[in-house]
C-alpha cells in the first residue's frame, strides 16, 4: 500500500470525498490517484476490450490508465486534485 511520508512534509488539512459510496479522506489538493492508492485502492477501472483490472501507471498525465469518473466527468486521477465533497466512481470508459 502506498503510504505518505510523515517526516519530510507538511500537508494541508484532510478533506473527505466519496468513492463508490465509501467516504475517504485525504489532504486537500493531493492528486486523486495518489489519495486513492494511499487508501489501498489501486484498481481504478477495467480495460474496455479485455475487461482487465487497471490502475494508475505513469502518474504524469500520459498513459490515461487512471481516467475515471469524477463528479460525473471522465478525468485523469493523477492530474485531479482531491477536493472536499468530490464524488468518484471507479469506472472508466466501457
Amino acid at each position: 500500500m502506498m503510504s505518505r511520508l510523515a517526516a519530510a512534509a507538511s500537508r494541508p488539512a484532510e478533506i473527505s470525498f466519496e468513492v463508490d459510496g465509501r467516504i475517504l479522506s485525504a489532504p486537500q489538493g493531493e492528486p486523486l490517484a495518489t489519495a486513492l492508492a494511499a487508501a489501498g485502492l489501486l484498481q481504478l477501472r477495467h480495460s474496455p476490450r479485455n475487461g482487465a483490472p487497471r490502475g494508475a501507471f505513469c502518474f504524469m498525465g500520459v498513459c490515461q490508465e487512471c481516467a475515471i469518473h469524477v463528479d460525473g466527468v471522465l478525468r485523469q486521477a493523477c492530474m485531479t486534485p482531491v477536493a472536499d465533497g468530490m464524488v468518484v466512481e471507479l469506472r472508466g470508459v466501457p
Binding site: 505518505r4 512534509a9 495518489t34 494511499a38 494508475a56 505513469c58 502518474f59
Partner: peptide, 17 residues
C-alpha cells in the same frame, strides 16, 4: 505496476512511498 519515472513523481512531488 508503475513506471520508474512515476515512482520519482511519487517520491519527489507527492511525498509518498
Amino acid at each position: 505496476v508503475i513506471g520508474l519515472a512515476a515512482a520519482t513523481v511519487l517520491l519527489k512531488s507527492h511525498l509518498v512511498l
